[in-house]
Design a protein around this nucleic acid. Structure first.
Lengths: 231, 231
DNA sequence: TAGCATTTCTGACTTAAGTCAAGGAAATCC
DNA sequence: GGATTTCCTTGACTTAAGTCAGAAATGCTA
């Protein structure tokens, strides 16, 4: 487990945002950043909470979501290590627009808003990286939006599985697979549906011999048809 | 109508992105930017087209959208004057991820990618403004996403009408109103639905005496219930 | 302003997905 | 390692919204 005492500068170097900074700058960051740990299902912050600063996920998984007035949860993003989150209010002001909980034992780094804005001024290269990061997320949200409004649930699931397989690096194996580490209820809400419907979508893909499920692992037996569905 | 010959620097000053630049910098921008005009329904660029640069809408309305493999259109954004569009590939590389058409007689300013990236280096203040702009759009997309997956069509329409009324500045009138200037089909697709369903949603709000429609103008007779629906 | 074309509306029907309620399977905790 | 809680699945039912087809309304052009 990564802690504040274990070479924080080495960790910082691996964060895309900071990859091109000098040792001196990394040292500065490690001075004004705090490392925090959370257990499974801990609330990191809630929608409407006063904004403290930017988080960088060092270990674990974080669910970023919203809850509608009727209590329905919409998962906006699933954060994986070395990505930032809670970065919108840095530039927009205001409180947290979304909530975040840990899905694992997680370790995060918190950099206060003021310190980060200070840093960004002395190091304009970081702005460009943040812009690149935002651009990527805008694209991904546009994708999510298009998916939700133009594909039915089995198609959205197909697309999700393909993305997961790609990030698992098993895409080019004869039988690609992923281990689903996040709860089905979270996947459902990320795909804009509910667990029952997701369960039926999984069953449908299994019945059509497109996937094979063993425990928490999904094997793709017919990638061509899965891609067809996702398109 | 704004043309290249009519004090371009005055226009530039009104663009939020450039509001704090010096006359000298504005002059530079006006040198490497091109003003282009489009008639109603002209294609400004298509998804997949090679990326030229950042657009700023000076006059008119632009629809930014995607078309799914089955031909269904998803409207991502409706651009109003003095906003930028086609800014994602500036930082992400690649071709246009979305398409854009004019809904009106429109005038746009095109700033080439290289020139803009050059400018941003000499003027880091612009990066911060772009970051603020991106942050705002991320928030708006998160909103759209939550809406589509947690509200039914009449609720989404209610929310849309409230936003329109706010931007029309009639929100605090006894009977707020908006003139719908974009086609219903575009509104439908922006709300993640189809014209028939939108038409029924309009009828429902009218039957419940929440709105009153006269031609292309929608009057809100019961703002409280409209806000209730949008929540 | 007549006539054509596009846009919008309406009705009947179908379907995907949500709701409710229950049962089964895992994971977690003494 | 058995019991309790949490998660996931299944079935029967309801409902919102999509599809298709045609009618009405509006806008545009000659």
């Amino acid at each position: 487990m990564i802690t504040k005492d274990q070479k924080p500068k080495e960790t910082l170097r691996n964060i895309p945002l900071f990859s091109e900074l000098s040792i001196e700058q990394l040292r500065k960051i490690s001075v004004f950043s705090k490392v925090k740990k959370f257990s499974k299902n801990d609330i990191i912050f809630n929608e409407g909470d006063t904004y403290l600063g930017l988080y960088i996920l060092l270990k674990g998984t974080v669910k970023v979501f919203r809850v509608s007035s009727k209590g329905k949860e919409s998962v906006v993003h699933i954060i994986k290590p070395l990505s930032t989150f809670a970065d919108i209010p840095l530039f927009e002001g205001g409180n947290h627009p979304v909530s975040a909980v840990s899905l694992d034992e997680t370790v995060v780094m918190l950099i206060s808003k003021d310190s980060f804005l200070e840093l960004i001024k002395t190091e304009p290269e970081i702005s460009l990286k943040m812009l690149a990061g935002f651009a990527k997320r805008l694209k991904s949200l546009i994708n999510q939006l298009e998916n939700v409004s133009s594909k039915e649930v089995p198609g959205r699931l197909a697309k999700y599985l393909i993305e997961e397989i790609k990030s698992a690096g098993t895409y080019s194996l004869p039988e690609p697979f992923v281990k689903l580490t996040i709860p089905k209820s979270t996947i459902a809400s990320y795909l804009g549906t509910i667990t029952e419907t997701l369960s039926r979508a999984f069953k449908k893909l299994q019945n059509e011999k497109i996937i094979r499920v063993s425990g928490k692992t999904v094997f793709v037996t017919d990638l061509i048809r899965l891609e067809e569905l996702a398109r």
